[in-house]
């Protein structure tokens, strides 16, 4: 597959995305998990651009949790209360044995990353291309997450283009 053209950082970021999805209890790897993966891997042009914009892994995780709480609150469920009532055994993480597939949106991000790499005539797919793929996915969760953290896709894209 296209994994062979991934840079080392990029492969790490995809693996880290799966880990993040598991930890946050996402039953598929979404575009927001790819964003978290870039941050968790912590290396590569994509990670540098994100940290230059003030986006940290911790803040992004918090934002992801906050969006879950908000979604539940919108239908009248308090995640805090559920957590309190159920006690210690309440655990959203995905257990080890269960597979966590890529969501259609995350697959699209990776496809777009490939397209961006071809467009720039880069012989590899790096975290910068994955991040561009994420930003092109305007109705994606990751773009919404970034917006909540005060980061606009345009500003990030400018940073990425400068870095290249």
């Amino acid at each position: 597959m296209i994994f062979s053209c991934f840079t080392r950082e990029c492969r790490r970021c995809v693996e880290a995305a799966v880990e993040e999805a598991r930890m946050l209890g996402h039953d598929s790897v979404g575009d927001e998990d790819l964003l978290l993966g870039i941050l968790r891997a912590g290396e590569g042009i994509g990670a540098e651009a994100l940290s230059a914009s003030g986006v940290t892994l911790e803040a992004a995780r918090r934002e992801s949790e906050a969006m879950l709480s908000e979604a539940l609150a919108s239908i009248g469920i308090s995640l805090e209360e559920v957590r309190r009532e159920a006690g210690k055994p309440f655990d959203m993480r995905i257990p080890r044995g269960r597979r966590v597939p890529f969501s259609p949106r995350a697959k699209k991000v990776l496809e777009r990353a490939l397209r961006e790499a071809v467009r720039f005539r880069n012989g590899h797919i790096g975290t910068e291309h994955v991040l561009l793929g994420i930003l092109r996915n305007e109705d994606g969760t990751a773009v919404r997450m970034l917006a909540h953290m005060g980061v606009s896709p345009e500003a990030l894209e400018d940073l990425l283009c400068e870095a290249r």
């Binding site: 039953d27 879950l68 539940l72 159920a86 055994p89 309440f90 655990d91 959203m92």
Partner: peptide, 22 residues
Amino acid sequence: MVALRRTLEALEAAQVENAIVA
């Protein structure tokens, strides 16, 4: 709604565990 399904699953798992422990 994905958020609801995930919460529900975690809640079921937790309450079954609570019941077994009890």
